[in-house]
């Protein structure tokens, strides 16, 4: 698979480490009243779709940026690659 890095251009997926579903960006508030339930969902449960999947890849052997890759799990086709930083900021996160 070739991942089209937003800053560096097309890179071999071997340079990356895979983490999982991009929802892992949205870490729950540990002070919320239902934090235990929220963390159970966050840590253990997955949508695991057969089709388009937004997922986190880390460019470990490159510029060490985290990317959100949208990839079809049935065909391995990659349709979009964003910097995870931009995705998080668009959701109102400061860092």
């Amino acid at each position: 698979m070739i991942i089209n890095h937003p800053l560096l251009g097309p890179r071999d997926s071997q340079e990356f480490t895979y983490l999982g579903d991009a929802s892992l960006i949205e870490r729950p508030d540990w002070q919320a009243a239902d934090a235990v339930d929220q963390f159970y969902d966050y840590l253990y449960l997955r949508d695991n779709p057969a089709g388009l999947h937004r997922e986190l890849w880390y460019h470990e052997q490159g510029d060490r940026s985290w990317l959100v890759v949208t990839r079809n799990t049935l065909t391995h086709d990659i349709t979009s690659v964003e910097l995870a930083r931009d995705v998080a900021k668009a959701k109102g996160r400061s860092t």
Partner: peptide, 18 residues
């Protein structure tokens, strides 16, 4: 391997990735 896709039809999310 199809656990996630099949159980989603019953509205369930699983502690599983395929």
């Amino acid at each position: 391997g199809s656990s996630g896709a099949v159980m989603a039809k019953a509205g369930m999310r699983l502690p599983i990735e395929s």
